[in-house]
Computed example of a mutant assay.
Amino acid sequence: MSILIIDDDFESSVKIKEILKQSRHSDIKILEANNAADGLKIAKENRPFIVVTELSLKDFNGIEVGKKILSESNATFIIAISQLKMFELVQQAINNGFSGFYLKPVVKNEFLTTIDRLILSNPIINKQEASFILSDNKSGEFEADMSKPIKTAIEYIHLNYFEVINLKDIAEKVYLSPSHFSRMFKEVTDTNFIEFLTQVRIEKSKYFLKSTAMPIEVIAHNIGFSSATYFATTFKKSQGKTPREYRSLYMKLDSN
């Protein structure tokens, strides 16, 4: 996956690159062009997932650049940037299917919120990105050890908590009957399977609430909850606060 920056403002390009490299999306390949002609050529050859384009390029109108890229690839998202605070530009960007508009200098949190939203809303990218972003095991590999079935099950949960997981399926993976697996799991972890899985998901959600600006409903979906309402209810029962209250608390601590 790649992001193409089309901007003839060197300082602006550097800032956007720094924002991406210092974020959890540091693995994304960054492509660059300082004019529209090169940008269109790179976009055609590489099919970037996201294109960030200045609207006032010296050799071409940025709106037209975005329109051309979108006409050639329905899998590319366009984010517009500009120094001009003009409602007409925002309106043009929206009307032409752009996914975001930011005034320079780009604000880190706002920009990353849009990157998060685009990545996590894409059904093709989503599963691959989830295995990389949402898992502690960056290799995404799962190795079953049949001599240690509960250890294997716990490892599987940590790798796949964002998927639909049930006791029967995991019991089958470790070659145990559901009832025997359930008893062994409780003996080893001192909790039942559902409670353990829920707590893993809650701990993952706490990281995203503290360190990203992703909407709560997006977080809920991407950690395996069937709905944002169910996530909020479960989170409050576990932490004594709603997800929104928890996020607000850490925002206040960061601002002090």
Rank of each mutant, 00 (worst) to 15 (best):
K138T: 12
Y175L: 06
S121I: 09
A171F: 07
L134N: 07
F225A: 10
T229A: 11
E203S: 08
V200C: 11
R201F: 04
T229G: 11
S121G: 15
L118F: 14
R117H: 09
I115V: 12
N160M: 12
S211K: 09
K168T: 04
K210A: 11
A144G: 10
I170S: 10
F193I: 13
K138D: 07
E163S: 13
A213F: 13
E110Q: 12
K127L: 12
S139N: 10
L176P: 04
E187K: 05
P178M: 00
L134V: 12
T189Q: 09
I125P: 01
K108T: 15
I202K: 06
M214G: 05
A144C: 14
K108Y: 12
T234W: 00
E187S: 07
F142R: 13
I223G: 04
K104M: 13
N96L: 00
L176G: 06
F196H: 15
I216K: 06
R117K: 12
I194F: 10
E187G: 02
L167E: 06
H158M: 02
F181L: 14
L167N: 01
S211P: 00
N192K: 00
T191P: 03
T233Q: 02
E187T: 08
D169K: 07
T189I: 00
L118T: 15
P149C: 02
M146L: 08
I216A: 01
S147D: 05
S135H: 07
V200A: 02
K104R: 09
N96T: 11
S139A: 12
L118E: 15
N192C: 03
S227E: 11
S135A: 15
N166P: 03
N122F: 09
Y175T: 09
V188M: 04
S131R: 13
F193S: 12
I219K: 00
T233M: 01
F193D: 14
T212G: 04
I170F: 05
D116F: 03
E143N: 13
D169E: 01
N137V: 07
F181W: 15
N160K: 10
F231E: 03
L159H: 14
T234P: 00
I157S: 12
F132Y: 15
Q128V: 13
G224R: 01
N95K: 10
F196N: 08
Q199R: 11
K104G: 15
N222I: 08
